[in-house]
Design a protein around this nucleic acid. Structure first.
Length: 124
RNA sequence: AAAGCAAACCGGCUUAUCGCGCUGACGAAUACCGUUAGCGAGGAAAGUCCGGGCAACACAGGGCACCGUACUUCCUAACGGGAAGGGGCUGACUUUUAAAUGUUAGCCACAGACAGCGCCACAGAAAAUAAACUACCUCAACUUGGUUGAGGAAAAGGUGAAAAGGUGGGGUAAGAGCCCACCGGGCUGGCGGUGACGCCAGCCGCACGGCAAGCCUUACGGGUUGAAAGGCCAAAUAGGCUUCACUUCGAAAGACACAGUGGCUCGCUGUGUGCGCAAGCAGGUGAAGUUGGGUAGGCUGCUCGAUUCUGACGGCAACGUCAGAACCAGAUAAAUGAUAAGCAUCCCGAUGUAAAAUUCGGGAAACAGAACCCGGCUUACAGGUUUGCUUUUUUU
RNA sequence: GGCUCCGUAGUACAAUGGAUAGUAUUUCAGAUUCCGAUUCUGAAGAUGCAGGUUCGAUUCCUGCCGGGGCUA
């Protein structure tokens, strides 16, 4: 698996897993995101990501697409912050009301990933 | 040349780095992995307003009801869409005292109001089977500036969206299509046109409005549900009941009727009858149906099609026929991207000039994201190209 | 995805196609009071948008815009 790849394995798409994440996971806010994460027992060696942009805040499908793509690129290029990969499920919920530039999202993504890693180590 | 309107078309490009989806090839290799090649959002993908394909279910035939459409002919798989034509309305030009005719541009949900019902506020004498009232004219009586009665006729009446054919003349006691001319209208016939309709001739003096985007009438069309349709597999769970067939047990029977509950069926409860000495009147397997429970994962449907491009021919056109070439998204918590740089377009400032070109810096670049697939319609849209029309200015 | 209903003052509701769109409440001003509340008087405030039918649309028709409900 490549260093910057983002294949289907790394996406969170199963309904059961999503429900599990939202029920058991812990969350924190880091502008412009709300982040929910959960470290499942056992290790598959792959972290899984879910990106959500509310239809209530962005009526147009194009706007939602651009935000989702920017967040995805930010995660893809910076995911090595979480090394070594474990069985982590993360949900990024975009809470800002306007479309933020890529540089801003990248910056916040790095900060949030570091925070997640710190919390996981503390829990263990 | 500029501005406006209408129609048609286009809707940025290139490179680098890192990525995503599908398909093919290769690597021990049909599913995972790697390498590599190809392809990968729109003119509206949108709204979901129409129409069709496709699928499942339903269906003798006819009628009623309900919904939709509405000048004619054609195009089409079909349409509420499109093309051509007809008619009407509005504006301009020509002509003219003015109209009509003619030319041209734009617009029109443009069937039926002597099949029926309903509505037409306010104002007004009257708002729809024509006329109560005022005023007009004639005669009579009383009387003399008038009043009353009888009759005539339907012209005049500050309204109103709409007033009962219009204008002019004759006629009369006063009037009236009462009569005449022109215009308008209706009916009949002929001719032309596939048809809507048009033209011509003759006849009728011709009271009877508007609204069907009020009910309605006529003609035509419409079965219902939608890809979360439908088919297959995996996983998981808990079976129950009914019917039928076979079988086991048994000597045989292994049932029947009525009532209650209930919308109905099954069922449950009760009573009676039958079989059996009595207990008791069953068990199992399979198929179909039904109810309940479970599963929310994969494959298929799924993208080659009323397809796209080019050319020829037919048609006024919409469009059709033929020939050749091409393969052009198939995602599913949902791919088609992110970042950086450059080019082209436009704007602003500077440089420069008679005006430009050039160069430098900065900025802008829309509407918008496939979800089974097509044909339309509607709505949104920076900027650009072409064509046509109108207006203004300049030059010859 | 499909089906269906509804948009009227700030709010909750009315209004056969027919005078200036009505009622309650809210807001503002005045009166009453020593000051408030209550009460009384007056005022302000609306048909979602754009077309069409009609002499005349809140009402009828068409197209947009916005909101709700049902279905799985």
């Amino acid at each position: 698996m490549g260093q910057f790849s983002f294949s289907k394995q790394e996406r969170l798409y199963r309904k059961k897993q999503i429900e599990e994440l939202f029920q058991k996971g812990s969350s924190f806010y880091l502008n412009p995101f709300k982040i929910i994460f959960w470290l499942a027992p056992g290790s598959t060696g792959v972290n899984q990501l879910l990106i959500s942009v509310s239809k209530k805040n962005f009526k147009k499908a194009t706007d939602r697409n651009t935000i989702r793509r920017r967040i995805r690129e930010a995660y893809r290029l910076n995911k090595r912050e979480l090394e070594p990969a474990q069985n982590l499920s993360i949900a990024y919920i975009y809470t800002a009301r306007e479309i933020q530039p890529s540089s801003f999202i990248h910056e916040k993504m790095i900060a949030s990933l570091k925070k997640i890693k710190g919390k996981c180590i503390a829990a263990n």
